[in-house]
Design a protein around this nucleic acid. Structure first.
Length: 578
DNA sequence: GCCGTTTTCGGCCCGACTGTTTTCAGTCG
């Protein structure tokens, strides 16, 4: 590991050891110690790697000498002999079973020990054959749920989150741009379009020498194939990489072709053919025998009689028609955002202090930052009681006074309770500058119950916005069942904003739901939900999602400056009768 | 494995929810 693992990664290690120990079921208390250690590390108010290396274990309750050594080994070498030891004797596929929602270590252990199931495929077969029902406690609903979950697992096999692919893309671009003979380089494919999950990384290069490019890629990733037109490889994290080579003359058209999507390109092709232009599979566009040369993608769209279509829009969701009619809007850009309305601190489950978060927001050039820690019902995140909320206000005000050019506001990310109530009294909410309301519990409620719960929250006059409205975790958990149209209709009526949560493991609202929301007249907020200072820098993921939804800066509440933001809120409250 | 001692062992233990039960086991945030 090039850099020291962060708390989340260390927590994942301790959790993985706990998994292995629980599956072995030899010493439940030892397993529990690792489990609680993982939890403590995840919510530790300090950088655990540093703390352990400095020998300051005393400041980490639940982490003793032995677990300290586990962490130290991992931090120093990037590997964990203790994890290997704990896993010894259990097939790797058994741990894959834990990725299925509803399968914990107890079930995985029984599947392995009693049914000799060693991987997801084995579980699928046992579910299908009915053999699974032999296990006591394994009723029809569980079997059906497992089958649904396995189907989802198959779907996302080979897909990677944008949050994992984009940093790799940036690293590759940096390493390739100086390679011999490379005169132009650009991101392409679904990563360029900002898709929430992708199957690979595509890059287009104007380059003369495929072998030189392959050599350069070899220093950055494992190269697997080289031809005159492309070089393939795979990153250390297993993400397939394709480098598409073009001549300098054909760079723009190759970039367009390799940026996709297939559906968007098919629409362009048919427009081109109306004009007697052959799109072709490679090389320049042709009109009859003559090559149609274009220097940029913008020129290419112009030749076709279209406005330039931003890469994020190229999904054939009406953008071609809009481009033809000259109706494409100017999409929201990162530079339009003036602040972040959703961030956590050590007061609940964040890693940094209010002052550290404020300093990071200032470095990003934000005009304002809302401190929005969890509310008391979320005990696992050390949510704030009304008393602690009042105490926190003093600290927010004190830190705010230290920053001349950043306004610090106190908000909350209040839980939406199971019946839709918020986790603070009206009088307490009235003291806050911004209220985000989010669902964190009882995800399994029926569609009707969840929709009613959400509508109640939206109609609460104190709720300014709904955080991560569907609760999805990319490649990990489906969102809860929800009638999103009913939710958006209510939000449009009350003026409650819907969040595009920029956390790369959420991107919630999705691009498609965000598009639907603005069509229905809902205002959008783009927030990071940062739990650490560096995560305040994740706003671009939210912006790209908003752009895919065709959203403009007017539709995003936090493109407003402090005064206009206050005005937006006053207007919303007035409408709510406050 | 951690902790706190009645100081080197013995106790440790989230709560809501679901599905399968008929009083509870397992999962999960």
């Amino acid at each position: 590991m090039a850099r020291a693992p962060n708390n989340k990664e260390i927590a994942a290690l301790l959790g993985a050891i706990a998994d292995a120990l629980e599956i072995k079921a030899e010493d439940a208390f030892r397993a529990r110690a690792f489990r609680s250690g993982a939890r403590r590390v995840e919510t530790a108010p300090v950088d655990v790697a540093t703390t352990v290396l400095e020998g300051k274990l005393d400041s980490l309750p639940g982490i003793g000498t032995r677990m300290g050594n586990v962490i130290a080994d991992y931090v120093k070498t990037g590997a964990s002999p203790q994890l290997e030891e704990a896993r010894a004797g259990i097939p790797a596929g058994v741990f894959e079973l834990l990725m299925i929602q509803g399968v914990g270590t107890k079930t995985a252990s029984r599947l392995f020990n009693e049914l000799e199931i060693v991987d997801v495929d084995g579980l699928e077969a046992a579910a299908k054959s009915g053999r699974l029902r032999q296990l006591p406690g394994m009723g029809p609903k569980k079997v059906q749920r497992f089958q649904e979950e396995i189907a989802r697992l198959h779907e996302r096999r080979g897909t990677f989150r944008l949050g994992d692919a984009l940093p790799e893309m940036a690293r590759l671009l940096g390493g390739l741009e100086g390679a011999t003979g490379v005169t132009a380089i650009s991101p392409a494919g679904p990563v360029r379009r900002g898709a929430a999950t992708v199957r690979g990384i595509d890059i287009v290069l104007a380059a003369t020498d495929a072998n030189a490019v392959a050599h350069a890629l070899g220093t950055l990733a494992a190269t697997t194939e080289t031809t005159a037109e492309l070089v393939r490889g795979e990153t250390a994290g297993g993400i397939p990489v394709t480098l598409h080579l073009a001549t300098p003359e054909d760079f723009a058209v190759t970039l367009l072709r390799q940026s996709g999507s297939a559906a968007h390109l098919a629409r362009l092709e048919s427009i081109a053919s109306e004009q007697g232009i052959d799109f072709g599979a490679a090389g320049p566009l042709r009109r009859g025998a003559a090559a149609v040369r274009v220097a940029t993608e913008a020129e290419l769209y112009e030749v076709l009689g279209l406005q330039f279509v931003a890469a994020e829009l190229r999904e054939d969701r009406g953008e071609v028609e809009a481009a033809r009619a000259g109706r494409l809007p100017r999409l929201v850009e990162l530079g339009d955002l003036r602040g972040d309305l959703h961030a956590h601190t050590r007061w609940s489950d964040g890693a940094h202090t209010i002052a550290e978060m404020a300093a990071a927001a200032r470095r990003l050039g934000h005009d304002y930052l809302v401190i929005s820690d969890h509310s008391q019902s979320l005990t696992v995140a050390q949510g704030l009681t009304p008393e602690r909320l009042r105490e926190q206000r003093l600290e927010v005000e004190a830190v705010d006074a230290e920053f001349a050019d950043l306004r610090l506001f106190q908000g909350t990310e209040t839980d939406i309770l199971t019946r839709g109530g918020l986790d603070f009294e009206d009088a307490e909410l009235a003291e806050l500058d911004w209220v985000t309301a989010s669902v964190h519990t009882a995800f399994q409620q029926s569609r009707e119950a969840m929709t009613a719960r959400m509508l109640t929250a939206i109609r609460n006059p104190w709720a300014d916005s709904i955080g991560h409205p569907t609760g999805r975790l990319l490649n990990a958990r489906e969102g809860y069942e929800l009638d999103t149209d009913a939710v958006f209709a209510a939000a449009a009526e009350t003026g409650t904003a819907m969040e595009i949560n920029a956390m790369p493991d959420r991107l919630d609202l999705s691009d498609e739901l965000a598009r639907r929301a603005v069509e229905m007249g809902v205002d959008i907020v783009i927030n990071t939900d940062a739990h650490a200072a560096e995560q305040l820098g994740l706003l671009p993921y939210g912006v790209v999602t908003a752009r895919r939804a065709g959203i403009t800066h007017e539709q995003v509440v936090n493109t407003r400056d402090v005064e206009a933001l206050r005005e937006w809120r006053r207007a919303r409250m007035a409408k709510a009768g406050l």
